[in-house]
Design a protein around this nucleic acid. Structure first.
Lengths: 145, 145
DNA sequence: CTTCGTGCAAAATTTTTGCACGAAG
DNA sequence: CTTCGTGCAAAAATTTTGCACGAAG
């Protein structure tokens, strides 16, 4: 965590380059992501930020999250029920282990990408119920147009 | 497609076992899934069903989709924006290729599971922008409780 | 100063729920 | 007949948007 401040400074510098204002709310939201290992939801981030800035609105969190997604500093983990979660520590796509009971999300070893669910089960102790592997990209037809 | 009728009959039998009523709407919704290669959204299913049963409500589609998910006959493909899509032909988890422009979803070869995004890119012609690999299951702590 | 971000409220979307009628078994 | 599913409408839940004030640069 020694380089967390460094990471924060990097992101702030990136925002400055975009000529975005550096506000206390944005810093608080950023810090929440950097301090969280729990892959928080929008609501959870809002609750956390309100501890220090009680007047912060949900709208501001949504707007900032959209901004941070755009500059690639947080990763959105899509959920079928719409309750998306976010990862500000490893903004690049990587496998997650998601508990369908307690909703915990932990990072999985990227090297496991090449193995099957059974192998993940053996390594992690999770009882795997299902998985999702999605590739997002532009299809050949769209690339031509 | 010769065994599509067979599949339909199987699902209907499964519904009967559950003592669910076999209604024209449910059959229409089922047929829509079985005929679709496009991984339709709830809205798209509703539109299609309305062609033959114009009075069908969106609520009925939601309720039937929930039912079909429960009995494992359709696969829900979660999207971060909440616009989920469904696969009624291969109800078991498998990789998809999703175009971020036209939103097309095509099934990917399960054998590709063991390869990296670059390999998928080479094989499919898609320009991969990101991917999602999610394992859903019960974590060790929850298994004990 | 000037512009942008915030916060409030309203709006827009999407999904769920309650209930009475009609249909399935 | 009896129970369940449908369809309508209302409700709930979530995300987006408009606008005026206040803050950042």
């Amino acid at each position: 965590m020694a380089n967390m401040q460094e990471r924060l400074d990097d992101i702030i510098a990136k925002l400055r380059l975009r000529e975005c204002r550096i506000t206390p709310q944005r810093i608080a939201i950023l810090k929440t992501f950097l301090h969280s290992e729990e892959h928080p939801s929008i609501e959870q981030v809002h609750e956390q930020v309100k501890v220090h800035f009680p007047t912060t609105s949900l709208a501001t969190v949504y707007k900032t999250v959209t901004l941070l997604k755009e500059i690639g500093e947080i990763l959105e983990i899509g959920f079928a029920d719409g309750r998306n979660r976010y990862d500000g520590n490893r903004p690049h796509p990587h496998p997650h282990l998601i508990c369908t009971r307690c909703k915990a999300i932990v990072d999985s070893d990227p090297s496991l990408l090449g193995e099957m669910a059974a192998e993940v089960e053996r390594v992690s102790g999770y009882r795997i119920e299902s998985h999702q592997l999605q590739f997002f990209g532009v299809c050949p037809a769209c690339q031509r147009s």
